[in-house]
Design a protein around this nucleic acid. Structure first.
Lengths: 160, 160
DNA sequence: CCAACATAGGTGATGCGTCAACTATTCCGC
DNA sequence: GCGGAATAGTTGACGCATCACCTATGTTGG
């Protein structure tokens, strides 16, 4: 990452050469992978990765509808982010809103026919991209390691 | 990710249960990790991860100066993104500009004293966070796997 | 009942990232 | 040298993410 070894007097434990190489590779991979997934999805379907996630979360629901905060929880998004995003998606006709009878504050977010068509059209290509860029590139044991790594890091991040 | 198995007639090879679990874990990990690294860096130093990367790239240079497109290349950023970001960083006094004698179109980006102070103050805490959230969480063989995985995926993404 | 509080959700400002278009210089072939 | 292509860098528009704050409705203890 750079001459991080300059601060040798600090209490910080610096990264050694291998750690530094690994970290740089990870950062570069995640940035390039995200960009490429986004680019292809956008080009093939006009959806962003965020759109895709919202639509997937909606189709996961029994009635293809959900309260805004339910959706925010299952996406692990801030409600404000979701609110802004839903407004844009609604303008594009991908989702709609319905009154919530038992809670006057609430809203249901519903999948529109256009929204369903969009996710149905986008999903196969996106899955194929993920397979091509990730799963086809990894032997079984590295795949298993990836799962372990993700869970281990998540445990650290989620319990600070 | 959802009922991706619906499209069984398609040519797409779907993800099996283990692949799907792994993929979801990865997505969640990368999103939470990035958010947490950003949050802590921001709280402790007022720098964003992007600011950090730019400042690190600059301190990597012999004279702590670089042409804009050089910087863009080493960061692997689009020149437009960098241009916008440099404008914001300049407004905050983290970097400055200098005329380029041998190329009238060009600019040198230079690290200011404030910029150097900021990166010096931010780096130890950031490295410590990375160590705590990632390296301390992983046994040596998973760390090695992470390096292999990142390189394997990068090869796929970079050669389409 | 009603005041205090909690909850559902939206809004506006600001920073960030991408795209397409633009300006200004330099390079290169004639 | 000069006209067109290439290069360095910026700009504006727009989508996206976060933050702080706001409104409206529901809930609850006295």
């Amino acid at each position: 990452m750079r001459q991080l070894f300059r601060y040798t007097g600090s209490v910080t434990r610096w990264l050694d050469e291998r750690e530094q190489t690994t970290w740089r590779s990870y950062l570069r991979m995640q940035s390039r992978l995200h960009a490429e997934l986004h680019r292809r999805l956008q080009a093939e379907s006009g959806l962003s990765l965020a759109d895709f996630d919202v639509l997937v979360a909606l189709t996961d629901r029994p009635d293809e509808r959900a309260r805004v905060l339910e959706l925010a929880t299952s996406l692990d998004w801030e409600k404000s982010r979701l609110s802004h995003h839903l407004a844009r998606m609604q303008k594009r006709g991908l989702i709609g809103r319905e009154e919530c009878d038992d809670d006057g504050r609430g809203n249901y977010v519903v999948l529109t026919a256009d929204g369903r068509a969009a996710i149905d059209a986008a999903a196969p290509g996106h899955v194929e991209t993920v397979r091509e860029l990730v799963f086809d590139a990894l032997p079984a044991d590295d795949l298993a390691a990836l799962g372990r790594i993700a869970e281990a890091v998540l445990t650290r991040v989620d319990r600070p």
